[in-house]
Amino acid sequence: MSQARLKDAIASLTDTAARLSHLSQRSYQNPYTVLDWPTAVEPEQEWFSSPELLSLYGTPLWQGLDERTRRRLAFHEAANFYSLNIHGEKSLMQGLAARLYRRDLAEVADYLHHFLDEENKHSIFFGGFCTRYARVYRTRQIAGTQTRPRDVEDFLFFAKTMIFEEIADRYNWIQGRDIRLHQVARFINNNHHFEESRHLIFGRQLVAALWSACAPDWDGAQLADVRGELEQFFVASWREYYNPDVYADVGLDDPWGVAELAWAEPSQREHRRKVSSKCGHFLITTGILTKEPTDAF
């Protein structure tokens, strides 16, 4: 890989990183004081997720659920959404920490500090909800043992981070503004969206810069591997939104069958395509992907 191209790519981010660092300092918050947690919540009385975003919405199963069960599903899916964010942010924090002050990324180290700090704070909110009122749902994503060249690992790390955050941000954006939701759920979503907007700007610029710097040196097999990995990452990320453990907690029979039915339902496939469209468009227009990640839809 051309070190000069990578150096130029990182240098192109320094102004953005400085501006974002300034904004992060200005909105620095204490996660232990900024939110008053109620002693208890009533999952069957209040909405904790927007019903239109639920994994069973628009399916025949949804029609068969009474109002209390729909709200209970919304509560457990809120905990699942926060849980998948916790797991995603754990991997993200590990990756950011590993790259802090690495010589070739030193020019953005200040902003990586903020990125890391803010991800940890988000997890405090997500974990605060799950441990007080519900539980932290497990992830089925398991770290792979395959190793790739460092430039490929860097690119995939930041590209996956961007995909994960862009999907979650759409949920945050909608739910942070949904006045039907319990105030704690609105706060967590709105706060996350506010903070993530900086990460998304940084993520897109960095992914595009790394791609321009690294991809010209990759052969056809490497490019196919990178593209295949990102396409499958869409699938793995979306699969976590259809969690049989949630359906079991809600009291639905055959939770794995429910997950398969919901995943394959045309209205849900369209929902995933719609939520993924901005991110997918970015990946295609930059040439990173050559087609829509259709296996996820």
């Binding site: 992830t139 699938v235 793995a236 997950a259």
Partner: peptide
């Protein structure tokens, strides 16, 4: 297969 296939395989 990729490790990213594991969530689907576990399900």
């Amino acid at each position: 297969l990729r490790s990213l296939h594991l969530p689907e395989l576990l399900l």
